[in-house]
Design a protein around this nucleic acid. Sequence first.
DNA 1: ACCCTGTCATGACACTTGTCATAGTAGAGC
DNA 2: GCTCTACTATGACAAGTGTCATGACAGGGT
Lengths: 195, 195
Amino acid sequence: MEKPQRSPRERMVYEAAQAMREDGVGGAALRTVATRAAAPRGSLQHYFPGGKDQLVTEALEWSGEFAAAQVRAYLRDTRRPSPSGMFNDLVRQWAAELEDRQFARGCPVAASVVDTANANPQVRAAAAAALATWQKPLRSGLRTMGVRPARAAALATLMLAALEGSLVLARAERDTHALRVVSRELAPLLDAALP
Amino acid sequence: MEKPQRSPRERMVYEAAQAMREDGVGGAALRTVATRAAAPRGSLQHYFPGGKDQLVTEALEWSGEFAAAQVRAYLRDTRRPSPSGMFNDLVRQWAAELEDRQFARGCPVAASVVDTANANPQVRAAAAAALATWQKPLRSGLRTMGVRPARAAALATLMLAALEGSLVLARAERDTHALRVVSRELAPLLDAALP
DNA sequence: ACCCTGTCATGACACTTGTCATAGTAGAGC
DNA sequence: GCTCTACTATGACAAGTGTCATGACAGGGT
């Protein structure tokens, strides 16, 4: 996830997502977000009159769309896509970033669920929406490869669950081993869904 | 996870784990933990001179052992255990509790990783240790069923990752659908490892 | 009787957080 | 030039946090 050249508002949403990935929603202080976005603190209340909830919600929307674009890029750029190839592409990118950043950043959706799913219905709904956005290209990609619709939905869910879980394991162990194992073990199952 | 009749100290560790499951490590305030454990606030500094870090660490140890005992109970009480049966037993118990408590409580290990893996090495290590404790009976159970050691380790990792991830999905969606899908899709893969 | 140790109880602290209030500044439109 | 709007900037505040200091109280052991 490279840091793009964007408006102050977009930078704040972006940096909010990154802060959530590092220290969870509770650890993502608004002052820190403003500082890292090189934006004035006063702009927060101007752009996000809904307060922190709004910022977190938009950060989740951004994250969902970013993840979906990543999947679509695989489908667009790969000559002969396969279910296992699509999943492995995800795993590979996450593993690379975990190692680059020394396991500092996880998934913002998981962070928001763990921190606020119980206390904040709005953020919880935003997390669910981000997951749906992410899952959509996975599902349609599988269908394009010839997987039956019902099965495509199930496998997309499995991919997301396995990825989110491996990320937790990898960060705990400071080792991308779990990610690689899961990708390897799941590969035959995923490809067996092809016609 | 029933609330046992234990010493004030044990009650505090237990309630710390539950609070972490609900609102993450950041949301688990020490005052709240003391109140819910029906213990005086002063006892916290007495039993846990290491402060919140120590309490969280012990809560993770407790959680790891609780989860491991759950797996061992399946292996002990089931006449003809199978890999898919073992995984489904886990899923079933988690799904039941999610629904009972209306998705208020997730996995404490995931919570600690997401919240503090980046900032707190001690807690991160405790989370990794808890995962190892949990994984151990899964691995040895698979081996007892006849799965080759290397494969048993890989499948245990896969189970944990898939479970942790499904929990995130299920809490976000307030629906145990993802848990059931993952269990169903993984079943044939898991049982195919039998000799 | 004494003290000593484990536990309980309460108050205070420094700090951070999200939020609000207020005012300043730039720049376009006319 | 003037005004209106969008944005920037700074200060303050109440609430909540982890931590520490201090003291009270019980119950043995001697």
